[in-house]
Amino acid sequence: MGDRGGLLDPLFHNMPLWLLGLAWFGVCLLAREAGVQLYRWRKARNPAIGENSIAAQAHIVAAIFGLLAFVIGLTFSIALERFDTRRGLVIEEANAISTAYLRSSLLDDPNRSLMQKTLRDYAQTRIAPEGIWDEQAEAQMKLSLALRTQLWDQTRTAVFPVRETDMASYFLETINEVLNVGTRRQVAARAHIPTRIMDVLFLYIAVAASVLGYMLGDQPGGNREATAVLLFLFSMMIITIVDLDRPQAGALQVPQVAMEELVATLQRDAPPAAARPPP
């Protein structure tokens, strides 16, 4: 599970991504300007400071931003791997519930009807449990856990009379898979990049921006525009990482097609509701 309690944890999980991106790009620009002002202050006190080798400065800046690119790439790979894990678990859980539903049709009534209804209700609660945990998501998860307990109780009742048969073994294996995948998906939904890593990454890019401004100093040309574009690109990559770490709250959402199609299929298979008697 992702580490919580980092310095910028509220920003990573609560602030809108577009606002977080703009705020951080502004911080990078301010850090760059702070570096420029530090250079000018030192040059005013020591005019010989501007005689440093431009080639040496280029090597220093290249090393700093090369390491930054490596750290961003590593963090991006972690976020992408966790996103792919969440996406794969949706398909895996949909297949497990579908298999359990089909095998439950081999049971006798009333066990068959009860278990299929529970599986239909349970599948409905498994649509998009990933993402930021608000009150609605917590309520949905509590209902899912209650249905999971109910599903196991109904399974035990259904297979107990035939517990020594192969059918009981196959059916128990299927239900266990449904419960296990549900637990793994629940854990994966709350697994985030440790926020201390993100704290260090944000701090590093701020320091790198200030060093960049210091190295450029008051050199003429379009350095400000070029460095602004560079800092914008780095900020955009970090926001993409944060977006991947918010699987249902940003532009990059975990696809729920497999679970939605399963729910639609199970609802079509549901028996029609009993008609109410006339008043």
Results as ranks from 00 to 15, higher is better:
residue 214 Y to L: 14
residue 191 A to R: 14
residue 210 S to W: 07
residue 210 S to R: 07
residue 189 A to K: 03
residue 194 P to Y: 00
residue 192 H to Y: 14
residue 231 L to T: 07
residue 224 R to W: 03
residue 216 L to Q: 15
residue 184 R to F: 04
residue 209 A to T: 08
residue 216 L to M: 15
residue 217 G to T: 02
residue 220 P to I: 13
residue 181 V to F: 08
residue 212 L to C: 03
residue 186 Q to P: 00
residue 203 L to T: 08
residue 195 T to L: 01
residue 221 G to D: 09
residue 224 R to V: 06
residue 222 G to Y: 00
residue 189 A to N: 07
residue 217 G to K: 03
residue 230 L to I: 10
residue 183 T to L: 10
residue 193 I to D: 04
residue 234 F to M: 09
residue 231 L to Q: 10
residue 234 F to T: 07
residue 193 I to P: 02
residue 213 G to I: 12
residue 229 V to G: 05
residue 184 R to E: 05
residue 231 L to D: 09
residue 207 V to S: 03
residue 227 T to A: 14
residue 223 N to C: 09
residue 199 D to L: 07
residue 182 G to E: 04
residue 234 F to P: 02
residue 230 L to Y: 06
residue 196 R to I: 10
residue 181 V to H: 08
residue 184 R to N: 10
residue 183 T to Y: 08
residue 233 L to V: 15
residue 188 A to Y: 07
residue 222 G to S: 05
residue 232 F to L: 13
residue 185 R to Q: 15
residue 223 N to I: 11
residue 205 I to Y: 06
residue 221 G to P: 07
residue 179 L to D: 02
residue 192 H to F: 13
residue 220 P to D: 13
residue 199 D to R: 05
residue 187 V to D: 11
residue 204 Y to S: 00
residue 205 I to C: 10
residue 211 V to P: 11
residue 215 M to D: 10
residue 231 L to R: 08
residue 197 I to N: 01
residue 219 Q to P: 09
residue 208 A to Y: 05
residue 213 G to Q: 11
residue 230 L to P: 03
residue 185 R to A: 12
residue 205 I to R: 07
residue 228 A to C: 05
residue 214 Y to R: 13
residue 193 I to E: 03
residue 179 L to Y: 00
residue 204 Y to M: 00
residue 183 T to W: 09
residue 185 R to I: 09
residue 223 N to Q: 14
residue 178 V to L: 01
residue 208 A to M: 07
residue 205 I to T: 13
residue 224 R to E: 08
residue 201 L to P: 02
residue 207 V to L: 10
residue 206 A to T: 04
residue 233 L to F: 15
residue 227 T to S: 13
residue 211 V to R: 12
residue 217 G to P: 03
residue 196 R to T: 12
residue 210 S to C: 12
residue 206 A to M: 11
residue 215 M to A: 15
residue 232 F to Y: 06
residue 191 A to G: 10
residue 214 Y to F: 15
residue 196 R to P: 04
residue 218 D to I: 09
residue 213 G to A: 13
residue 233 L to P: 06
residue 210 S to D: 06
